[in-house]
Structures are given as C-alpha cells and as structure tokens.
C-alpha cells in the first residue's frame, strides 16, 4: 500500500516544482504566446498543487479505511462547493 506521506509529498512537489520550472521558462521567454502559455500553465500547476495534495491524502486514507478519510472527503467537497459557488 502507498504510504500517505510520501504520496502526498510527491503530489505537492510535482505541482510546485513543475510550476516553478515553467514560470522560469515563461519569464525567460518574455512576452508573447510561448512565454505567456508557459507562465499560465506554470501558475496553474502551482495553484492546484495543494488541492492535489488533499485528493492524494484522502485517497491514501480511504485505501487504508482510515476514519480520518472522512475529514479529507469533507474538505474536498467543501472546497469544490465553495469554488463552484464563487465561479458561477
């Protein structure tokens, strides 16, 4: 079974490191389509990383039938509901 700490850390790291690399590339390319695209994807990756961490933590807890999975599931549902309400 995947260890929750390692899996969550991997999700967080993938988002933030990948995002920062794309931001560096975007700033190096300067204004224009390729640079703007790189910045956009990079910032989106950084912004989504914490939520990806919640989803991975919750999935690991669910797989272990850990009762704390309920907290993760509630948090994911609340965040998504809040987002939907804000964006609509």
């Amino acid at each position: 079974m995947i260890e929750m700490g390692r899996a969550t850390a991997a999700a967080l790291k993938a988002g933030v490191v990948g995002g920062v690399i794309l931001c560096v590339i975007g700033l190096a390319l300067g204004g224009g389509s390729p640079g703007d695209l790189s910045l956009g994807i990079g910032i989106a990756l950084i912004v989504f990383a914490p939520f990806a961490g919640v989803l991975v933590s919750t999935a690991c807890l669910l797989a272990r039938r850990d009762p704390w999975a309920l907290a993760g599931a509630c948090l994911a549902a609340i965040v998504l509901a809040g987002l939907a309400a804000s964006l609509l």
């Binding site: 850390a9 967080l12 933030v16 920062v20 950084i46 990383a49 704390w68 948090l75």
Partner: peptide, 26 residues
Amino acid sequence: IASSTGAAAFYVEKGAANVRLGLLLE
C-alpha cells in the same frame, strides 16, 4: 501557495506535519 507547498512537501514526506489533523482543521 508556492512557499507553503514547497515547505509542506518536505515536512509531509519526513513525517513532520500532521496531515490528518490538517485535513480536519482545514
């Protein structure tokens, strides 16, 4: 997000942060 996630990735991997309590309190 960049600063807290960068730090959290390290702390969570090392078992230095309490993910379960964090999910509940959040």
